[in-house]
């Protein structure tokens, strides 16, 4: 078994009296989709924030690509290859989809301090950006401002950005949210292929998608992981059924 790409150990985070993350440990192995499910308010987004570096944990360790990253900021973690999509906001809503992805390409090339050459004629930005948009099926909408894209298209854009960054792992927080059934199906197919690119830590409410995609599932309830295992193990776990899937038995 290959080493984990991402490993979280004994992570804790409280907001006042509320324990949003309580001694959470999980890892992400090459090529897998590890789904994180749990009811609203369980602390899934809070956990993603801590892994990405937008929120500092109270205690615990985070290793990425075999290196501790707990002391690093968002920018450094992103530069190491930790890709992340967002639940609500777009990167640059006024920019076209293409320019959003071009910005990611630019970041990957490590070249934001260039002041004179116009980006709109720069094939080294445009071509990789278009390639990413094509992969997520958004090429025909490349020139549309991100703010005018539909909800589902914005999620596709998020993935295109993550692809363009060449991420070593993806943190996806509810990528299916706000998508119609058809959008969810095509995104499910896409994520299935994306895992070959880099493993995915997937927070998702859409259980059909989770059960179709996940190699492993962890269930988070009130900040604690109450079960972790394959889809079948988790589905039949009595505690999960009681706490989360709403089974009275």
């Amino acid at each position: 078994m290959a080493d984990a790409v991402l490993a979280v150990r004994n992570l804790c985070k409280s907001f006042g009296a509320l324990k949003a993350t309580e001694n959470v440990s999980l890892d992400l192995k090459p090529g897998e989709i590890h789904a994180l499910i749990g009811p609203n308010g369980a602390g899934k987004s809070t956990l993603i924030h801590q892994i990405a570096g937008t929120l500092a944990p109270d205690s615990g360790d985070i290793d990425f690509l075999g290196r501790p990253v707990g002391h690093l900021g968002v920018v450094e973690r992103a530069r190491m290859g930790l890709g992340r999509s967002f639940q609500v906001s777009s990167l640059a809503p006024e920019f076209s989809a293409l320019r959003n992805v071009m910005l990611a390409v630019q970041s990957r090339q490590g070249s934001s301090f260039r002041f004179f050459r116009p980006v709109m004629g720069d094939a080294s930005l445009i071509e990789p950006a278009m390639a990413s948009l094509e992969r997520v099926g958004l090429a025909t909408r490349a020139r549309v401002p991100a703010a005018e894209l539909s909800h589902g298209e914005r999620r596709q854009l998020e993935i295109a950005i993550a692809l363009a960054l060449g991420s070593q792992a993806f943190l996806l927080d509810e990528p299916m949210a706000g998508m119609g059934p058809e959008g969810s199906r095509s995104l499910t197919g896409f994520l299935d292929r994306l895992r070959e690119e880099a493993p995915i830590l997937l927070v998702e409410h859409d259980m059909d998608a989770v059960f179709a995609l996940a190699d492993r599932v962890s269930v988070l309830v009130y900040g604690r992981i109450i079960a972790s295992g394959t889809v079948d193990q988790v589905r039949t776990d009595p505690e999960v059924r009681r706490a989360y899937l709403g089974d009275p038995a």
Binding site: G73, A78, S90, A92, P93, S112, I161, L165
Partner: peptide
């Protein structure tokens, strides 16, 4: 210009 629109997101792509 992207920083003006969404600072946090710009950081999250490594800029």
């Amino acid at each position: 210009q992207a920083s003006r629109q969404n600072k946090l997101r710009v950081a999250s792509i490594g800029i």
